[in-house]
């Protein structure tokens, strides 16, 4: 277990440089008129950055399977929270059923 490969300073500096490039990219993308894609592009870049931080800086890549399962579960439940909340709020206008209690 202790013989796991560990990232080197070179890896950390490369990840850091990539994060800076992605930050510059997302600021540049905000100056473009992309309509709904402004949000999609910005959040996609943020997710790539988040993955880089988690995999390399937080060393998730080198963590035990148990730790990885906990993190994947967290992301799953976060998606459940955001997804079901939005699917409710975004479709409230669709409702046409007759409320028997009204």
């Amino acid at each position: 277990m202790s013989e796991h490969a560990h990232p080197t300073i070179k890896t950390f500096v490369a990840v850091w440089a990539t994060l800076l490039v992605l930050t510059a990219l997302t600021v540049f993308a905000a100056t473009l008129e992309l309509g709904p894609f402004n949000a999609i592009v910005a959040l996609s870049i943020a997710t790539v950055k988040a993955l880089l931080v988690m995999l390399f800086f937080m060393e998730l890549r080198y963590s035990t399977a148990l730790t990885k399962v906990a993190v994947v579960a967290a992301i799953f439940f976060l998606m459940l929270l955001l997804g079901l909340t939005l699917s409710d709020y975004m479709t409230r206008g669709w409702s046409s059923y007759i409320n028997p209690f009204r």
């Binding site: 473009l32 402004n38 959040l43």
Partner: peptide
């Protein structure tokens, strides 16, 4: 990580 999401949501996505 939290800031990585706060920055685009609060500052960037509505800029244009």
């Amino acid at each position: 990580l939290v800031w990585i999401y706060l920055f685009p949501l609060l500052y960037l996505i509505s800029h244009h």
